[in-house]
Every structure is written in structure tokens, then in C-alpha cells.
Computed example of a mutant assay.
Amino acid sequence: MKNYGVLRTKDFFIALALTLICALLGSFLGGLPYLTLIGALVISLILGMGFQLFKRPVEAATEGIGFISNKFLRLGIILLGFKLNLIDLASAGVKIIVLAMVVVTGTVSLTYFIARKFGVEKELAILSAGGTGICGAAAVMGISPQIKVAADKQDRQRENEVMAVAVVAILGTVFTLIEIGIKPLLHLTPTQFGVMTGASLHEIAHAVAAGSSGGPVSLDTAIITKLSRVLMLAPAALVIGGWYQRSTHKSGDGHRGKLPIPWFMGGFILASILGTFLPLGAGMLAGLVKAAYLFLGMAMAALGMSVNFKVIFQRGKGAFAAAFLASIILLIFTIIVSKFFF
């Protein structure tokens, strides 16, 4: 791991300026028509990758970029907890929570299994599975710190993060359009359509875009269903971290240490509790969620600046194919469940 204790002030402020530009521009562009399906986080990542064309400022702030991609990521995920209203989730009913647990467990396991069968390396398979099964880019970045790799593999792991984010961004957009297109053929009620979109799509933005096509009831249901999956991020990160450490130890690929505990995920849960039970007001909660996406956007931009994105097209095909097949199975499953149980 890098020693951020010796981070130079100049490095930090250059990195802060570069990533802030990407995050703000990504937030603006992500709100435009036709770009909402892509989302601000993925746009920030792409802009960060574009900054690699300007080698001098990026190289001058290498340590600062590493700090932001590491620390700001955790801060953003903690603040994202304010988006979760636990009372709303509880009022949605046991069926929604159970469905979220089944979808996350089943999709993560299925995507990982298929990816490994396609020859995808373990770390990339885990990240692609987490992004597909839980909540897209935020899940990829939330799970990645649990995948402890050797120092000489950290650059490759950052490439895995970019590839996993790219996979869920592309597939999420494709399946959003598919679900909107097949809506008239499914004959689902607004509630059923909302459950289907929230349980099957990758990013919150995807669920919002598809759910809104079914009206306000469908949109509300899609958001609640999707946020139920987001709630699974913290326990999933803990379970995946422990499983990865045990599996690498048994295979001789790593040494056994302490069970990795994602303390920032504890902050995520605490933020959701505070946002639910303290009278913070709608304006403050909205501001905290905006701050979460700003910090996450900066972390994504920093990630984009620090990887060799040419390898995406060389090593990402298997992960994309696995996530695509798993997404098809997930869509069919959620159509059946929403039709017969909601």
C-alpha cells in the first residue's frame, strides 16, 4: 500500500483540481438528456482517462491522485448512506428485502461462476459480479478495497476496476433500453414493472430511467427496490473480503492475515441511520447525497487517470460476456417474480 503520510501538498492540490474538474463536469453532463443513462460517475471516469493525454500535470500529481482514489472513494460511499431511508425500505415490505437478498446473492455468484468458466481472473470476476449484482460502479469501488493484492499487482487491480465499471455501465445502459422497449409486451402493473427494473438494472440511474417510463408509482417502486439492493453492499463487501482472503490463502496465492473489515461500510450504515432518524431536512439530505456523488466522481476520475485503459479491450471480453449472460438470466427471473409475487 502507498504511504499517503508523506503526500506532498502540491501533489494533493493538483490532483484535487484535476479530479474536481472531472467530477463537476461529469455531474453536469450526466444530467443532460441521453447522458443520464451513462451516469455522472462513469462520465467522470471517462474524463479522468482523457486527462492522461496531458501527461505533465497527471505525472506531477501521481501521489495525490492515488490518495483521492483511495480516501475520497470511502468518504463518498459513507455519504451515500444518506440516500437510504431505512423506514421507506422497511415499509416496502419483506418481499422487497428478500428479493434484494436473493438477487444480490444469486447474481454475484452466477456472474462470478460464468466469468471464471470464461477464463477471467479472480479479481476481475469478483468486481464484475459485484457491479452486476449490487449497484454498478459504486459496488465495484466499494468491493475493490476488500480485494487485497500484492504491491506489484496494484496497477493491474486498478485496470480491473476500470474494466468492471465499464462492463456494468455499458450493460446497464443496454438493458435499460431493452426493458423500456419490452414494457408493452410484458403486461405488468406499474408496481410490478418498478420491481422488475429496480431488481434487474445495474445503476440507480438505470433504475430511475426505466422506472420513470412506467409512471410515478413505477418510479417509486423501482427506487425502493434498487435501494434495497444498495443496502446489501456493506454485508456483501464483508463476505467477499473474507472469502477472497481464505480462497487465496488455500490456493497459495497470498498469506493469511486479519479478516478485512470494511470500516467505511460501517460509516455507510451509520449515515443511513442518521439520515433516517434525525430531522436533517430534505435540503440537507439532498446536499449530502450530492456531496457523496461529487467525492465518488473525483475518485472515479482519479482512477481513470491512473490506469492504462488500452488493456480494457484486451482483457475485458470474458467479463463482459459473463455479465451479459448473467444479466439476461436476472431479467428473466425478475420478470417472473414481479409478475407472480407483486
Rank of each mutant, 00 (worst) to 15 (best):
T9P: 00
T9C: 10
F13G: 05
A15M: 11
A15S: 13
T19K: 02
C22Y: 10
A23M: 03
G30L: 02
G30F: 02
L32I: 07
L32Y: 01
G39A: 05
G39W: 04
A40W: 01
L45K: 02
I46H: 02
M49E: 06
M49G: 15
F51D: 06
F54E: 11
P57E: 13
V58Y: 10
E59P: 02
G64P: 10
G64D: 10
G66A: 11
G66N: 10
S69P: 02
K71M: 05
L73I: 02
I78G: 13
I78F: 11
L80I: 03
K83H: 12
K83T: 07
L84Q: 08
D88Q: 11
L89A: 06
S91R: 13
S91L: 14
K95G: 12
K95T: 14
I96M: 13
I96H: 07
I97L: 14
M101V: 14
V103R: 02
T105D: 00
G106W: 01
G106L: 06
V108C: 10
S109N: 09
Y112C: 03
I114L: 13
R116C: 07
F118W: 05
G119A: 06
E121L: 09
K122M: 09
A125H: 01
A125W: 04
I126V: 15
G133L: 03
C135A: 05
S144H: 02
S144L: 09
P145S: 11
I147Q: 02
V149Q: 09
V165D: 00
V165S: 13
V167A: 12
V168L: 09
A169V: 03
A169Y: 03
G172W: 02
G172T: 05
T173H: 04
F175R: 07
L177F: 15
G181Q: 12
I182L: 13
K183F: 08
P184N: 12
P184F: 10
L185K: 12
L188T: 11
T189A: 15
F193G: 12
L201A: 08
A207V: 06
A207N: 04
G211H: 11
G215P: 06
P216E: 07
S218M: 11
D220I: 15
T221Y: 04
I223N: 02
I224D: 06
V230W: 02
V230I: 14
A234T: 12
P235Y: 03
A237D: 01
G242P: 09
T248S: 14
H249V: 15
K250Q: 14
D253M: 10
L259A: 08
I269D: 01
I269F: 05
A271V: 11
I273D: 06
L278E: 00
G283T: 14
G283L: 14
G283I: 12
A286L: 12
G287C: 05
L288K: 13
K290I: 01
L294Q: 04
S306L: 09
N308Y: 04
K310S: 15
V311C: 04
R315P: 10
A321S: 10
A321G: 05
A322W: 07
F324L: 15
L325W: 06
L325R: 01
L325N: 00
L331T: 15
I332W: 11
I332Y: 08
T334L: 07
I336P: 01
I336A: 13
F340R: 10
